[in-house]
């Protein structure tokens, strides 16, 4: 009975905003990319995404129920479903089920619940899962199936992704390697011709991701600051590199390849792990863009988006600290000499 009376300070304004609304909004925005992935990868995509979502929800439920022993489980707020979907989007479509289960356990168990659940995790859980799998199972995590093999799962034929070609060009120092890259329209739609590995499930179709991003901005679930600052930084930085030395790929190809769009629109904008103020979000976005290109061009891995976001997640509290908004009516303290 006592719980039914809510005592709180004014203003008592009532909004429709809630965790559920935002989480299911993002899941809705991911649907175009999910449908495209079914068309391109068929069975593999369905198995990986379903396993990942089911495992994340199960681990979230099991950990809150049996280890944290909380009465209210947070399974239905959509955050575990979203983590599962994003984790699935970050995996190749021919990944064996047992690896997906380990990824889900690390994402939810290590990435989220050890810190106390939703709202307390310093790192994006789906990316923690992906980074763990990428370091732990490098062979399975970097074999990219060709598109169009709708009925095959783990035995799909594989090929090199555009990012691998870019890496090869830099390693060999031979700009003509880049001629093998598919053109921009192909990369935007994701319908790679034979011989190309398409990448992870979610990152394949840039157009579907941009569509989802527009929906999120239209519904005011995210603001433009983080995605635009990441994409613009990548464009400018990789453009300068391309002009200076043609062994670095052209900026359009950098923007459309790998997990850049997926990361910029859906992963970096995670509420919990990104800065709160717009100024902070711009700093965060620009840093992610710079780090991504640095890792892509000079790092050991061909793709740097996930690591860049994780690194900047770690800096988010610091950015928040330096970008505190001025209180209304506050007089700035005099600077001491």
């Amino acid at each position: 009975m006592a719980n039914k009376l809510v005592v709180s300070l004014s203003p008592h304004a009532h909004g429709t905003d809630s965790v559920e609304r935002n989480m299911y909004g993002v899941i809705l925005a991911l649907l175009p990319a999910l449908i495209v992935s079914f068309c391109y990868f068929g069975l593999g995509s369905a198995v990986v995404c379903l396993t990942s979502v089911a495992a994340c929800v199960f681990f979230e439920w099991a950990i809150t129920r049996f280890i944290l022993k909380r009465e209210k489980t947070t399974v239905l707020d959509g955050s575990a479903i979203l983590t599962g979907l994003l984790l699935g989007f970050n995996l190749p479509s021919n990944l064996p089920i047992w690896i997906i289960l380990i990824g889900a356990l690390v994402a939810i168990g290590v990435g989220k619940m050890t810190f106390g659940g939703l709202g307390n995790n310093p790192f994006n859980p789906a990316l923690v899962g992906r980074a763990f799998l990428l370091v732990s199972f490098p062979a399975q995590m970097t074999s990219w199936p060709l598109i169009g093999q709708l009925g095959t799962y783990t035995d799909a034929n594989t090929g090199a992704t555009p990012l691998a070609i870019m890496k090869e060009a830099i390693k060999s120092g031979d700009a003509s390697v880049l001629d093998k890259l598919p053109d921009a329209t192909t990369m935007l739609l994701g319908n790679y011709s034979n011989g190309f590995g398409a990448g992870t499930i979610g990152e394949i179709c840039g157009l579907a991701l941009i569509l989802g991003g527009c929906y999120l901005i239209w519904k005011k679930i995210i603001t433009w600051h983080i995605p635009v600052s990441i994409l613009l930084t990548v464009f400018v930085f990789s453009g300068c590199l391309h002009l200076a030395n043609p062994i670095y790929a052209n900026p359009i190809a950098e923007l459309l390849s790998g997990g850049l769009l997926l990361g910029a629109i859906f992963m970096a904008t995670d509420y919990v792990t990104s800065p709160m103020t717009h100024k902070g979000q711009l700093i965060y976005g620009v840093s992610i863009g710079l780090l991504t290109i640095v890792i892509r061009n000079w790092g050991a891995y061909p793709e740097g988006m996930s690591f860049a976001i994780l690194i900047m997640n770690a800096f988010t509290p610091l950015i928040n600290n330096y970008c505190k908004p001025k209180r209304f009516g506050e007089v700035p303290a005099k600077t001491k000499k």
């Binding site: 047992w98 380990i102 290590v110 050890t114 763990f132 370091v135 732990s136 199972f137 490098p138």
Partner: peptide
């Protein structure tokens, strides 16, 4: 081949130590 390579590498040491201390 079923082992998670991460645990042999430095980040695995931190994760394992954290859980053991807990």
């Amino acid at each position: 081949s079923y082992g998670a390579l991460m645990f042999i590498l430095p980040p695995g040491a931190f994760i394992t130590l954290g859980f053991l201390v807990a």
